[in-house]
Design a protein around this nucleic acid. Structure first.
Lengths: 215, 215
DNA sequence: TAAGGTAGCCATACGTTGTAAGGTACGGCA
DNA sequence: TGCCGTACCTTACAACGTATGGCTACCTTA
């Protein structure tokens, strides 16, 4: 039994049954040990979750490739690769969002991103602003407002359609938009609407704006 | 005792001691009743949190003014007003982010936003994309990556400086950026870096990009 | 007026959670 | 041989959300 084995089992459990199912007793059972034995390898539940976040970030770092092109193309490729990791671990956005502070293992990743920008002529000021504007995009996801991944449960699209239909009179603009969009959207990949194309749209919107701000 | 009184007490408790302190027993104690009595006015803890989100959203709706100007100016004013509510309730971003589905009371608010855009000539498609690009900005906050508000505990800026100093060798770009920015930034208002100016920078970046996309 | 129902509140108790405290077996080393 | 640290376990506790059932005070209605 090692910390690594425990974290791997935790990832597998979260992948299979969601963050909610990840309890000390359940994780221990999956490892064929008792709950308290976990405390010889992990400093409690909070430490387990920290380790889990760290593991996902390591996976993001691991998918680095040879990004090519100008700063925009490089960051774009980088973020989209990170996104592939999130698609494998739908619970990760909620986990990362709930950590008390940023995992130190993220620092090198951000350093690389800032480096890409400063080499392209960004001032420290603009690079800082850019990091904030990106939000969680470097980690491969955007905060989902409708049906966030936090719940883990798959809210039915049909339910929402019914709700909206009932409120159609009061919500003319929303329903009109939905009517034009809901069925044409194709398949969402993370949650309702966080489809690949929408992620990329927002990403390009920001990259374009930063390119102009860089001036 | 009413649902409204219970929710008001819950808001006050969360304002004073954070979401973590909001338990059924504690809330009941603040109301000078017993925990089980809450169940005659609220459908359980989850329902309490739903009501809390609903209350905050009502507060956002209540701060509506007479937004003037073109679509950009109107949305800008609207979002900045919503932000004032979030500054009063630092726990609200984490709460809203953790709800299983979008509170129905948000629908009219989004309808108004979509209406503003479609009246300005946005297609349903672009309005949809814009909603996603905004993320949680209509609610007055951006997802904070460094030191998210979720924890409620105030992570010390000093700690981070120490951490960064220790890693300076390995993180040349980040430390250079921090050195140029950390002390010049002024006072952050929500968390570390989510200052008013950074919120507005990202907002304008998106509004500019959408104005161009509308073209 | 008297009977019955109900709304609001409470006491008790159960299952689940994280985890503190202390016990047991074993393997290396003096 | 005696000791001690490592890994695992058993037991137990406090806090959580909440199911269940009982109490009181008021309202309705014949």
């Amino acid at each position: 039994m090692t910390r690594e084995r425990a974290l791997a089992a935790a990832v597998a459990l979260a992948d299979a049954e969601g963050l909610r199912a990840l309890t000390m007793r359940r994780l221990a059972a999956d490892l064929s040990i008792e709950a308290m034995s976990l405390y010889y390898h992990l400093p409690g539940k909070e430490g387990l979750l920290d380790g889990l976040a760290e593991t996902v970030i390591a996976e993001i770092s691991a998918v680095a490739g040879d990004e090519k092109g100008d700063w925009r193309a490089r960051l774009r490729q980088r973020f989209l690769r990170a996104r592939e990791v999130m698609l494998r671990h739908p619970w990760a956005p909620a986990l990362i969002g709930s950590r008390a502070s940023v995992p130190p293992s993220l620092y090198p990743y951000y350093d690389e991103i800032v480096g890409t920008m400063t080499e392209a002529g960004f001032s420290a000021h603009l690079a800082h602003r850019a990091l904030h504007a990106f939000g969680t995009m470097p980690l491969g996801f955007v905060q989902e407002l409708f049906a966030p991944v936090a719940a883990g449960g798959a809210t039915e699209v049909g339910d929402a359609e019914a709700d909206l239909a009932a409120m159609a009179g009061a919500l003319p603009h929303l329903t009109a938009m939905m009517a034009a969009e809901l069925h044409a959207a194709g398949d969402p990949t993370l949650g309702w609407c966080d489809s690949q194309t929408e992620f990329e749209f927002t990403l390009d919107l920001l990259l374009d704006g930063l390119e102009r701000a860089r001036g």
